[in-house]
Lab assay of single mutants.
Amino acid sequence: TEYKLVVVGAGGVGKSALTIQLIQNHFVDEYDPTIEDSYRKQVVIDGETCLLDILDTAGQEEYSAMRDQYMRTGEGFLCVFAINNTKSFEDIHQYREQIKRVKDSDDVPMVLVGNKCDLAARTVESRQAQDLARSYGIPYIETSAKTRQGVEDAFYTLVREIRQH
């Protein structure tokens, strides 16, 4: 089974770092803004072998026109913010609204991801993020692309959301 996953969120929150940590098991430290990259990885989730087709997208506003296209083809979405960047957390709402509009559905598989949880300088409390996820009816997972904490959990949870859909 193949799953088309799309990673969305503001610029600099760590979308590529999360994806590369999942696929290649290493942490990319330097920031190089993405336009669009796709990665494929075969994994076993709950005993089922599946192929993850992951689209890593641009957070930069100037590429926002490309969003409709990949939102149409994606089956599930990782909505990523950084726990030390309140603005990126506030941006999640717009991504969710755009996904709902493009998919013409209120019920699209999504996982809210709070990345950079290895950093002490948190400005978005776990509780705020949990409340937001609960209001959307989606899971919330904290990750660190640096330490790998929660990385597999985030992507695998999204696959489970798609399966249950």
Rank of each mutant, 00 (worst) to 15 (best):
T1W: 06
T1D: 07
E2G: 04
E2F: 04
E2Q: 04
Y3M: 06
Y3N: 06
Y3G: 02
K4V: 04
K4F: 04
L5H: 00
L5C: 05
V6I: 13
V6E: 00
V6D: 00
V7W: 04
V7R: 01
V7Q: 02
V8K: 02
V8M: 05
V8P: 00
G9M: 00
G9V: 00
G9I: 00
G9R: 00
A10V: 06
A10F: 11
A10S: 11
A10K: 10
A10D: 09
G11E: 10
G11C: 13
G12P: 13
G12L: 12
G12H: 12
V13P: 05
V13C: 15
V13G: 13
V13A: 12
G14Y: 00
G14S: 00
G14Q: 01
G14N: 00
G14M: 00
G14K: 01
K15G: 01
S16G: 01
S16H: 00
S16R: 00
A17G: 13
L18N: 04
L18S: 06
T19A: 13
T19C: 08
I20H: 00
I20L: 05
Q21A: 13
Q21V: 04
I23A: 06
I23W: 02
Q24D: 07
Q24P: 01
N25A: 12
H26V: 07
H26E: 11
V28I: 13
D29C: 05
D29W: 08
D29S: 05
E30N: 04
E30A: 04
E30D: 05
E30P: 04
Y31S: 01
D32F: 00
D32K: 00
P33Y: 00
P33T: 02
P33N: 02
T34M: 00
T34F: 02
I35H: 03
I35W: 04
I35K: 01
E36H: 03
E36N: 02
E36K: 01
E36Q: 02
D37S: 00
D37Q: 00
D37T: 00
D37F: 00
S38R: 01
S38L: 13
S38Y: 03
Y39M: 00
R40Y: 04
R40G: 05
K41V: 14
K41N: 14
Q42R: 08
V43H: 14
V43W: 11
V43Q: 06
V44C: 10
D46M: 08
D46P: 04
D46N: 11
D46H: 11
G47S: 07
G47C: 05
G47A: 07
G47D: 08
E48F: 05
E48W: 05
T49C: 11
T49Y: 13
T49Q: 07
T49W: 07
T49L: 10
C50N: 06
L51I: 15
L51P: 07
L51K: 04
L51Y: 09
L51S: 13
L52F: 12
L52K: 00
D53F: 00
D53L: 02
D53Q: 03
I54V: 08
I54H: 00
I54Y: 00
I54Q: 00
I54K: 00
I54W: 02
D56Y: 02
D56M: 00
D56E: 01
D56S: 00
T57F: 05
A58H: 04
A58K: 06
G59D: 03
G59V: 03
G59K: 04
G59I: 02
Q60G: 15
Q60N: 15
Q60M: 14
E61P: 13
E61V: 15
E61Q: 14
Y63Q: 14
S64W: 09
A65S: 13
M66T: 12
M66K: 12
M66A: 14
R67Q: 14
R67Y: 14
D68M: 07
D68F: 05
Q69V: 06
Q69N: 14
Q69Y: 12
Q69K: 09
Q69I: 06
Y70R: 06
Y70G: 11
M71N: 10
M71S: 07
M71G: 06
M71D: 13
M71Q: 11
R72I: 08
R72H: 11
G74V: 14
G74S: 11
G76R: 02
G76I: 15
G76L: 15
G76N: 03
F77V: 07
F77T: 02
L78Y: 04
L78S: 01
L78F: 10
L78E: 02
C79W: 09
C79E: 01
C79N: 01
C79Y: 15
C79I: 14
F81N: 01
F81G: 04
F81C: 08
F81P: 01
A82M: 11
A82D: 15
I83V: 14
I83T: 15
N84E: 14
N84W: 04
N85A: 06
N85E: 11
N85Q: 09
T86R: 13
K87L: 10
K87H: 07
K87E: 08
K87T: 11
K87R: 12
K87Q: 12
S88C: 09
S88M: 08
F89R: 05
F89G: 04
E90N: 11
D91V: 14
D91I: 12
I92T: 05
I92K: 02
I92Q: 04
I92C: 08
H93T: 13
H93Q: 15
Q94L: 13
Q94H: 14
Q94M: 14
Q94F: 15
Y95F: 11
Y95E: 07
Y95A: 15
R96T: 11
R96S: 08
R96W: 14
E97T: 10
E97M: 13
E97W: 04
E97H: 07
E97D: 06
Q98K: 13
Q98Y: 15
K100T: 06
V102Y: 13
D104Q: 14
D104I: 05
D104M: 10
D106Q: 14
D107Q: 11
D107F: 13
D107Y: 10
V108I: 12
V108W: 07
P109C: 08
M110K: 02
M110V: 05
M110H: 00
M110Y: 01
V111N: 00
V111T: 03
L112N: 02
L112H: 01
L112S: 01
V113P: 01
V113F: 01
V113C: 08
V113A: 04
G114M: 09
G114L: 08
N115Q: 14
N115T: 15
N115W: 00
K116A: 15
C117Y: 07
D118E: 13
D118L: 00
L119K: 14
L119R: 13
A120L: 08
A120H: 08
A121G: 11
R122Y: 14
T123N: 10
T123Y: 11
V124N: 09
V124G: 10
E125I: 08
E125G: 10
E125Q: 10
S126L: 08
S126H: 11
S126F: 09
R127P: 06
R127D: 10
Q128D: 10
Q128E: 11
A129P: 05
A129V: 09
Q130T: 08
Q130M: 09
Q130A: 09
Q130S: 09
D131E: 09
D131F: 05
D131Y: 07
D131H: 06
L132V: 09
L132P: 03
L132G: 04
L132A: 06
A133R: 03
A133N: 04
R134T: 05
S135D: 11
S135T: 06
S135I: 06
S135P: 03
Y136H: 09
Y136C: 10
G137R: 05
G137V: 03
I138G: 03
I138E: 02
P139N: 06
P139T: 09
Y140D: 01
I141N: 04
I141K: 04
E142S: 04
E142A: 04
T143Q: 03
T143D: 01
T143C: 13
S144Y: 06
A145N: 09
A145M: 04
A145C: 14
K146F: 15
K146P: 13
T147I: 09
R148C: 09
R148K: 08
R148G: 13
R148S: 11
Q149G: 09
G150Y: 06
V151G: 11
V151M: 13
E152V: 11
E152K: 13
E152S: 10
D153M: 05
D153E: 12
D153R: 06
D153C: 05
F155Q: 00
F155D: 00
F155P: 01
Y156W: 11
Y156R: 14
Y156V: 14
Y156F: 11
Y156Q: 15
T157A: 12
T157Q: 14
T157C: 08
L158Y: 00
V159Y: 06
V159D: 01
V159N: 02
V159M: 15
V159G: 03
R160E: 14
R160Y: 06
R160D: 09
E161A: 13
E161S: 10
I162G: 03
I162H: 04
I162R: 05
I162P: 02
R163I: 11
R163W: 09
Q164L: 04
Q164W: 05
Q164P: 06
H165M: 13
H165L: 13
H165F: 12
